[in-house]
Nucleic acid binder design. Sequence first.
DNA 1: AAAATAATTGCAACCGGTTGCAAAAGACTT
DNA 2: AAGTCTTTTGCAACCGGTTGCAATTATTTT
Lengths: 333, 333
Amino acid sequence: MPKTLKDVAIRAGVSRSAVSRTFTDGASVSDKMRRRVQKAAAELGYSPNALASSLTTGRTKLIGLVSNNFHNPIFLEVFDRFTRALQEKDLRPLLVNLTDETDPASSVRMLRQYSVDGVVVASSTLPPGFSKAFRDAGMPVVHAFGRPTSSPEVHVVGIDNIESGRMAARTLIARGYGDIGFLGGPETATSTQDRLHGFLAELANCPDIRVRHSFAEAYSFEAGRREMLRLLADDPAQAYFGGDDVLSIGALSAIGECNLTVPGDIGIIGLNDMEMAAWQNINLTTIRQPIRHIVASSIELMAEMLKDPDRLPESRIFACEIVERGTLRPLKV
Amino acid sequence: MPKTLKDVAIRAGVSRSAVSRTFTDGASVSDKMRRRVQKAAAELGYSPNALASSLTTGRTKLIGLVSNNFHNPIFLEVFDRFTRALQEKDLRPLLVNLTDETDPASSVRMLRQYSVDGVVVASSTLPPGFSKAFRDAGMPVVHAFGRPTSSPEVHVVGIDNIESGRMAARTLIARGYGDIGFLGGPETATSTQDRLHGFLAELANCPDIRVRHSFAEAYSFEAGRREMLRLLADDPAQAYFGGDDVLSIGALSAIGECNLTVPGDIGIIGLNDMEMAAWQNINLTTIRQPIRHIVASSIELMAEMLKDPDRLPESRIFACEIVERGTLRPLKV
DNA sequence: AAAATAATTGCAACCGGTTGCAAAAGACTT
DNA sequence: AAGTCTTTTGCAACCGGTTGCAATTATTTT
């Protein structure tokens, strides 16, 4: 049913190459020819088949967007930004939802079958080896929200989680808390590990502050809530650094359920600054992760890779900042 | 770099057709041949190019997943379900984020260029004509969360919004509210219109109940909050049917900001029953939209269309149910 | 106005697969 | 062992485009 190059060529009474050329920019076509072809194409309602052309050009403009974070509301923002950024660059997101069952090899195979031009992995919980699998299969990869290192094996864009852990610790120290907890996300996530590491390192200078840490099973409301309930049942700390915002909101809920107040009885600081954190009935003090910059930079990097696939892997690190709201006691003066 | 059919053929010492046949099921190949080819393929790390094959078979297994709801957290659940359901059926979601700027024609063109096998439109706010544009371009379409009608022009899967409006009204009546408001989503959305219609129809039987209605600009926290603040500033009703859950949560926030209590001073009932509605610190009474069934049914329908593209358009309507939580006063006994 | 140069066009091969058809190979009869 | 019926295999054309190359046409130069 859909019209082809040939149909247009016949209608315009020219060669197929001529038609092809009017639809590929940079090709040599006279204005007269172009107009003639465009007229015929318009009459037929022709639009070129991107997949067929990919066969010869070797480019599909398809980008695999791979994530396992379909339960953290912040990722709706992330997907929104990624899809828009890709669309603006005339690229198309082929979405891959990594469930617990999917094995890495099969998603690699799948994306290869569709000859995606590149892969964006968006996750702070996937093991680092994961994105390497794509690279090893010869695809340009950018790991957004990954763990930046000084000698990265794939491109990584994200924040310095160690530093953000320190930042959280400093914030809590400055507010005079003497008994502080780290309520982390899943223990296996690099983001959790790094944040804890920085957190403890900063507090190592403060021998008079009591510090403990534990982990929730996921970056989720329910996991945060459950872990906080557990903590509350037995001698909780005065303030916690929650693994991320949604987890912290779960913790807030737990605190409320126990009829304790925030920040009166317990303080919380989250991480991400998702839209919800600013909701007036949540009003979470948090560390802002500059999502828009991370996404924009990831896509920019991807665009660079498409031009030069041999570009050396690089880490791009963005700074975080404290967003002061209502879940920590005020700064001591 | 990636290996081709030909490479495998040479390595196995057979014809290209033979290789092709071992990778298409239902083709005639002897076991001996199949094993031989598979061995060669494995040695080379070959995997067939889905796009090239789509050229001759006319099927890409690509499904356009089109939405404009990238700001409503419920859609993360929706995307999660859709992507998984598609993956299970060996279909790939090509995500299209409809922003205010994108015109329908361009997304139609885009999806045609990628020869998607079908299009799933997931939105309760898009005008009905939108999905028709895809159908007119010859693609199988399912509009999930659309407006079901008795003579649909495309397949529609969703709830009966008129009935859900009635259900909300009945619920509020049963609780003895004498002054009731409809705090709708965007006025142009079919879902808003239908819900209001049902709501008013049901209340038409109760002349002694005062009824008013107004609209928020979007199904969003901020829009709900703003509209509720406006309403609170001047003689608010006793209870409201909020356009959807996020919007209702925004309204709850506004109520809290004015130091009023829920359900003491004002009652709220939402619609959707998104995960967040069950969060203990929100605890929103709402009408559950059976998302999982809507999604599953949409994909099922899409699969049917792929088999029989001439299938007549049908509406599939799912029932909603009240989820009783803490934002309405208890039922009178 | 002829020669030299540049821009445009069509031919034909190719991208990586699939598939109808006829030839070749196997399996079964008798 | 020859003859018949199936199954398997390869050939070659095709899917809808792109592109190097040579031929053609237009433009400039002298």
